[in-house]
Design a protein around this nucleic acid. Structure first.
Lengths: 248, 248
DNA sequence: CGTATGTTTGATGAGTATCAATCTAGGTGG
DNA sequence: CCACCTAGATTGATACTCATCAAACATACG
């Protein structure tokens, strides 16, 4: 069923759901046409690996739908997630020929890929792409630094609240907010993936989620469906400035 | 005395010590001349703040000499270093008008600053600057992600060894290596700054440094001068692949 | 010589990892 | 259709790492 949905988008850049946010956001009509020539779509099922760290990588691309993760692994098996890729996020590094991280689909995933060499050539010729990529990379750097604070200084409870805040902020529909003042969303990650993101064990993740539930900060239906009755409260728990109680 | 040294570089881009590594690395003669018009130097003493997070920032720039840090602080005072700025590193974000982090000089510091608006205009017109900035930002993103693994998954001992490795790798003179097979350098950070970098307390940093000394992984003269007799051993302690024993 | 800043070392406790058992839901095959 | 199986999640008991609180030490500076 998810597969059906994945196929339901157009292959025409004009109608692309990430058209205005991805690396191609600033491209004009002519540039889009050049991109169309070097692009192709790839689909992955939940759990599949997109590339392994160290593998040769002859494409770069954008997440069209679904969620992927970037992870790093030590020899003894300890792993740390270093990036969470949402629709419109960019994968791969122009000028590098092998992957630096493991890239894994955590949900069914559709990617819009560009052959690397032609893409690199285009980057040199069309500033619109390089400009947008710079902007996106700077945003990712800010996100990574934000996450360094979480990893280095926050408690387990604060870490969970921080992760929930981030997901809530981007994932919750505006409609849901307006209606009930509650924010509702589905966790796109297993407890283990959350643990890898937060530098915790999955047991600690589970315990802290239970604790937040007991304390009324969140409500759960099943394992994945989360309701946040008071976003300000959640932000307080995350250790962020919760300022006004408004959901800004 | 350090001040004297700081002044001893030329103000001409041609002779600039970071000419080939900074954001201006790819600029041609004409572009350098345009940059000269909008650039100015600023000096800071060790301990001084360059900008506070949230402050208006009307310049961007490069570290010419000395070391600065980027730090984030929570309301209750917990702080996490999110970047270590070495000569040639870039400060500030084009397109943003306030600082996102506290920037502090940890040694005497000289910066080559560009007025922000003219610099942004130049970026739009000369791809060489934007290209180089993209490359540098991608490198910083990789470094930040590497650091996320350190913060999230490494033990205190491994964290210290990782930090020493990084400093050793960039700071040790080649001469020193060839001669004795030992690597020698000075720590540019206080124990407290190291703790803020590593997500530890300064006491833990002190203890782990003492432990590494007792175990012969490093030797110390005074508090800051470090000798690494066997770089491979240090890399093992850091939890990185130490492969061959060669100092590659 | 005295003060300030940075560092080391010690004693104790909190927070999280680890090991282990149990529970739940979804999917499979009899 | 039900029993079983599996992956994911929860909960419990215990151990260990690192934070916290506290005191002493070192070095530079006035």
């Amino acid at each position: 069923m998810l597969n059906e949905r994945s196929l339901s988008f157009s292959h025409d850049c004009e109608d692309c759901p990430i058209r205005h946010r991805a690396v191609c956001a600033r491209c004009d009509q002519a540039e889009l046409e050049r991109l169309e020539e070097i692009k192709y779509y790839r689909k992955f099922e939940a759990g599949q690996t997109v590339v392994w760290s160290g593998d040769r990588m002859d494409f770069v691309g954008s997440v069209v739908s679904g969620i992927a993760t970037l992870t790093q692994t030590m020899e003894d098996g300890r792993t740390q997630m270093v990036g969470l890729l949402l629709p419109s996020d960019f994968v791969g590094r122009p000028g590098r020929d092998s992957a630096a991280y493991d890239v894994t689909a955590t949900t069914d995933l559709v990617m819009c890929c560009f052959r690397k060499t032609p893409f690199e050539n285009m980057m040199d010729q069309t500033p619109h792409i390089a400009q947008r990529l710079l902007e996106m990379t700077l945003d990712e750097l800010d996100a990574a630094r934000e996450w360094m604070l979480v990893l280095g200084r926050k408690t387990a409870r604060e870490k969970i609240a921080s992760l929930l805040s981030i997901i809530a902020r981007r994932d919750a529909s505006v409609a849901t907010r307006a209606a009930t003042h509650s924010i509702v969303f589905d966790l796109p990650l297993t407890r283990e993936a959350m643990a890898d993101y937060l530098g915790l064990t999955l047991e600690t993740v589970s315990r802290q989620i239970s604790a937040l539930r007991k304390d009324g900060v969140i409500a759960l239906e099943g394992k994945r469906h989360v309701t946040v009755p008071d976003m300000g409260r959640l932000l307080e728990e995350a250790g962020d400035d919760a300022d006004g109680g408004v959901f800004a």
